[in-house]
Simulated assay, not measured.
Amino acid sequence: MTDASLRVPTAAAATSKAQRYYTASQWQLVWWRFRRHRMAIFGAGVLLVMAFMGVFAGFIAPYGGTTRDAGYVYGPPQMVRFWDQNGFSIRPFVFGMTSRRDPVTLRMITTPDPDTRRYLSAFVRGDEYRLLGLFSSDIHLFGVDTGMVHLLGTDDLGRDLFSRLMFATWTSLSVGLLGVALAFVLALVIGGVAGFYGGAIDDAIQRFTEVVRVVPAIPLFMGLTASFPQDWSNVQVYFMMTLVFGLLGWTTLARRVRGHILSQRREDYVLAAEISGASPARIIGRHLLPSFTSYIVVDLAITFPYVILSETALSFVGLGLRPPSISWGILLQDAQNVRAIEQAPWLFIPAAFVVLAVLAFTIIGDGLRDAADPYQTSD
């Protein structure tokens, strides 16, 4: 076999790869670059798992968000086992728990009872819920034959922390999603109009943007919380919070978009589009904004954790969502006293979910920034 015959497949493969590269759409190129960023793919996987847990919270959680176990208040997490002093079991189980009150401190002390096994079963019936908000069901992913199981322990009312964490994950992520989506649309529209038209329209929009930027967030939320009618449902409070996050979060991206369009609106390709009869909306949406995709995508990814942190912080101090709604901030309210720190450190587990979500969004932002950079080359 000659050297020339060995080079033919390699050259053909290189030619085919080059053809696919030059004929691919912009979003195909972004995806090809993004999937080579392993940390970003891992971060996306983490968020997908969280989103899955939130969407199917009613099915994954063994109990409802308000179901109480009165005999297991401030109970520690129960470890899933396959063996104990009595030998190996093919079915996973947890130990039963016994509670007694300390005669000196009057503190309730809960200890595992190794003589009692509670076997875990899959697809058990329990509290009724609505799957995807559409279908009623009472089948849960797992449960025990008798009694209750608390993989992450319970709070001061005996409510299962694992179940509440599943419901809280969906609430916090959806608040971030809706708030960022609203802010994103407002930023592109307002920034695009200001940059494209300029003049008096730009001046008026910039003065309005400055007014929104200087509004102090905490006093505003305090005033809004006080103004919410007490008879409002949790759904109404929820949508009002997302609306406020969206109406306050568009200013930074809008100014970036406005500055980019101001610098590009006199370029030859924009003038050619105007001469061809393209409308301002088409010029902004099809020609100007795509050249700014890398920054827009990164800003969008980084804004998510800020909205999530804002909701968590406001709910933590009592200015955001309020019980019986369940979010990460509301769960962390139970861990803001000395008693919880000393007796129930597992109540801080929701903080780990907050940190993990913020880190995942940040890593994804880095990956999207590199993937959406128009000056990047594809190997």
Rank of each mutant, 00 (worst) to 15 (best):
G195R: 00
Q19C: 10
S233H: 07
D203Q: 09
M1T: 15
R38H: 07
M53V: 12
Y22L: 11
V297C: 04
G176C: 04
G192N: 07
E210S: 02
T116C: 11
V80E: 13
A344L: 05
S16G: 06
L161S: 02
D156W: 05
A335P: 09
L157S: 03
S163G: 12
L173N: 07
V297Y: 03
A183H: 10
I326A: 01
T312N: 09
I283K: 02
R36F: 00
F93W: 03
A340I: 10
A24W: 02
N234Y: 00
G176F: 04
F196I: 12
W27L: 14
R125D: 15
R118L: 15
S163R: 11
G179R: 03
P112N: 13
V124F: 04
L47K: 04
M148K: 05
G64Y: 03
F82E: 15
P92F: 14
T154C: 08
V49Q: 00
R118G: 05
Y63P: 02
F348Y: 15
R117D: 13
T98M: 13
G246H: 04
A254G: 13
T98K: 15
N86M: 10
F95H: 12
L359D: 01
L262V: 09
G58L: 08
I139C: 01
G365I: 09
A57D: 00
V30R: 02
M148Y: 08
I218H: 01
L300D: 08
Y197V: 04
R91F: 13
I261H: 04
D113F: 08
G195M: 03
R130D: 07
A122D: 01
Q336K: 08
P350H: 08
H150K: 07
L347C: 02
P323Q: 15
W32M: 12
V214E: 10
G367C: 07
E267M: 09
T377P: 02
P345W: 02
I296M: 01
V235E: 12
G277C: 06
I41V: 14
D203E: 14
T225L: 11
A183K: 00
L132T: 09
A344Q: 03
W250T: 05
G126M: 08
Q343L: 07
S16L: 11
P345G: 01
A14E: 10
M50Q: 09
G223Q: 01
V8F: 00
V30I: 13
I205K: 13
Y375E: 03
E128C: 06
F239V: 15
F353C: 01
D113P: 15
V149I: 02
L134S: 15
D370M: 11
Y306K: 05
F123E: 08
T251E: 03
L151K: 02
T303Q: 13
D160F: 04
D366H: 11
R81G: 01
L332D: 01
G246S: 07
L173M: 13
H150T: 02
Q19L: 10
D202C: 04
L356A: 10
M39D: 03
T209Q: 12
R7P: 00
D156R: 09
I201L: 14
T23D: 12
R107K: 15
D370W: 10
A272Q: 12
G199K: 12
W31L: 04
M1S: 15
R339N: 14
G45N: 05
